[in-house]
Amino acid sequence: MNNQQDPWTLGGHAFTSRFILGSGKYSLDLIKAAVEQAGAQMITLALRRASQGGKDNILDYVPPGVTLLPNTSGARTAAEAVRIARLARELGCGDFIKIEVIRDAKYLLPDNYETVKATEILAREGFVVMPYMYPDLNAARDLVSAGAACVMPLAAPIGSNRGICARDFIEILIREIDLPIIVDAGIGKPSQACEVMEMGAAAVMVNTAIATAGDVPVMAAAFKLAIEAGRSAYLSGLGRVLANSASASSPLTGFLREGEESGE
């Protein structure tokens, strides 16, 4: 199956790529090549890095036709996230906003409580709200009620490249939440991106794993293939996995047949 046969929508916009690319931590002049190799239709952008008239505006490096996903990095409270989102809209970055509210400078873990508050305000103002969150089912349900367009749980601490540390909790969100689940943060290798797609994630967002790779565009291409492979595997339905051990020679339910034979 190719991408064109498997579109998905977010905030009323249709996408065929399920790869959201981050733009931080690597040279601006590699952004275009990374987007192209990733086949990405959406790229995140820290609004605090989008200069307003200064040298090297990151906005100048994003190829046309790609949906900008400004994020609120730098916000420590809901109020600050709201302020940054409004500024992004004023700067012409569109209505998509990825909410990041972080009040821990060491681990950069998102604050779910403040994220819910910001989501509620911004959804009311017509933003397509994409909240980054710690994978907690109750908070995810609150985000749905608050008007989020999707839920973006972290797989591991941001920037850590540690893979799917939060696997069980992400699986719960995929099962229980009726919005696209976009796994964000912590994915370190294409194989891990493939795996979350096999689990049923709607899309994957990757930044550090690509930014810190030896060859940024090549790694972007590798993630593209992995995400597509994982999506195809999910759609096809994963096959039965046999256990390594042999079947017990004396089945536990054998007694049922013994009863039949004796006529009991």
């Binding site: 730098g74 302020r83 940054i84």
Partner: peptide, 14 residues
């Protein structure tokens, strides 16, 4: 040296 010079990455939020 393949480093990205960054002039600022910050928003004053009051």
């Amino acid at each position: 040296r393949n480093m990205q010079p960054v002039m600022s990455e910050y928003i004053y939020l009051g």
